[in-house]
Design a protein around this nucleic acid. Structure first.
Length: 405
DNA sequence: ATGGATTCGTTCAAGACCTA
DNA sequence: TAGGTCTTGAACGAATCCAT
């Protein structure tokens, strides 16, 4: 049966790029707009939707485009800011104003080049941008701050900073053609004309797609998915989400360039601290912390403990710490599924898009293991099916777990 | 100098994309 | 539409950094 399942590029970030707001900023890996649309196709417009792992707010944006009220949770302040910026409406006047002011800034910022402009303390910054490109980018940033304020200062100007993030990544020497972002062999050199043109084209693209108003409403809020509390008494009808998967890919790793330039991150230590708060984080100190982490709760399903044990006794070089890593992942997800119950309406349907993974060749069947947690926690009608084959390790697939509360 | 902490670099096959 | 080329990727060890 599995052999007939295909890769579906229409369910990945690739298809999202051409879908207006969804294509503003890539997060590796984002899940598909089309999949969310399918899951919401026959849902009553009055239904309130939640995504406890917001990421780039794909679920919330699709839901709001269809007229729903949506809530979206995340623990990363940059993603909360980005999600709210993607899901709000911008007046025509505001868009015209931004276009005019950006053109003015581009005319005037060049006198700042070479001056004492703020530059982020990102590790090995010279591998991301050449020293000349950094001078141009930091001068432009200073001019944009003078004109529009810092990213969180004025919601009307969010679009400028999203465009700046796109400029940051497109002018960088990051190699995005691998599983995780790394660097090209040589650092790209750019002059002012190139940066001006690139920035202007990105701004135009974003302004164009921001014209389309959204009829629903979205609130992206800072919530730790493991400790969900009351939502002003509001109860949820539908939960659609793609939580992190149990593997070593770190969201912080990919988000660093954006987060440093927008001042959501200021030093390397903060990146590790933030990833430790996230479920499945492995960046910086997050991995080291696993050495002293211990399971407090013993109600986890036996299937989870058995999978963890196969990793622990395998001959992988870091088998023992990665066994702890997988255990903590499923413990955190169990806490999440437990605390989520307090905001669900009876009969709420859940759809969790997850991927399996391997550690030293040992399969971690995420869909089956999370289904077990759901069963233990009292969810009903639990089932899962394969959505698509992933374009990597042969045995990796993406699944949709469905359940009812 | 050392060793723990932190960050980087990548295989190879499926499937998308292009060309004639 | 056949056949060639290009693009892509949800682990893991190696490499490098950096307090002590």
């Amino acid at each position: 049966m599995i052999s007939t399942i295909q890769q579906r590029s229409d369910y990945t970030f690739k298809a999202n790029r051409s879908l207006g707001r969804h294509g503003w900023l890539r997060l590796t890996p984002a899940y598909g707009v089309k999949l969310v649309e399918k899951l919401l196709a026959n849902v009553d417009r009055e239904a309130i939707v939640i995504d406890p792992f917001s990421g780039t707010a794909t679920t919330a944006l699709v839901a709001a485009e269809l007229g729903h009220q949506a809530f979206s949770f995340d623990i990363n302040p940059f993603l909360i800011w980005l999600g709210n910026a993607k899901c709000r409406n911008y007046s025509e006047h505001c868009l015209i104003d931004i276009r005019k002011q950006v053109k003015q800034v581009l005319k005037e910022y060049k006198i700042l080049i070479g001056g004492d402009n703020w530059t982020p303390k990102i590790f090995h910054i010279e591998r991301w941008w050449s020293s000349d490109t950094i001078k141009i980018l930091s001068a432009l940033r200073t001019a944009l701050v003078n004109q529009f304020g810092e990213p969180e200062d004025n919601d009307d100007y969010n679009l400028v900073w999203i465009a700046f993030c796109r400029l940051i990544i497109e002018s960088s020497s990051a190699a995005f053609n691998h599983i995780s972002m790394s660097f090209k062999e040589t650092v790209d050199e750019h002059d002012c004309e190139y940066i001006d043109e690139l920035f202007l084209s990105i701004v135009e693209l974003i302004l164009m797609s921001a014209q389309q108003n959204i009829c629903g409403s979205v609130q992206v809020v800072k919530v730790d998915a493991r400790h969900i509390t009351e939502l002003d008494g509001i109860k949820i009808d539908k939960a659609i989400t793609s939580p992190p998967y149990p593997n070593r890919i770190s969201y912080i790793r990919e988000l660093r360039p954006y987060m440093y330039w927008t001042k959501f991150l200021n030093e390397a230590k903060e990146a590790g601290e933030l990833d430790w708060l996230a479920i499945g984080g492995t960046w910086g100190i997050a991995t080291s912390r696993l050495n002293s982490w211990q399971l407090e709760d013993e109600t986890l399903p036996d299937e989870i403990l058995a999978t963890v044990n196969t990793i622990k006794i395998s001959d992988g070089k870091n088998a023992s710490i990665l066994a702890v890593y997988v255990l903590k992942y499923f413990y955190d997800m169990h806490l999440h599924l437990s605390s989520l119950r307090s905001i669900l309406k009876d009969g709420c349907e859940l759809h969790y898009i997850v991927g399996n993974s391997t550690f030293f060749g040992n399969m971690v069947d995420t869909a089956a293991l999370l289904s077990e947690s759901m069963r233990v926690l009292g969810y009903s009608k639990i089932s899962y099916e394969i959505v698509r084959k992933r374009n990597c390790n042969k045995s990796l697939y993406e699944y949709c777990i469905s359940a009812t509360w």
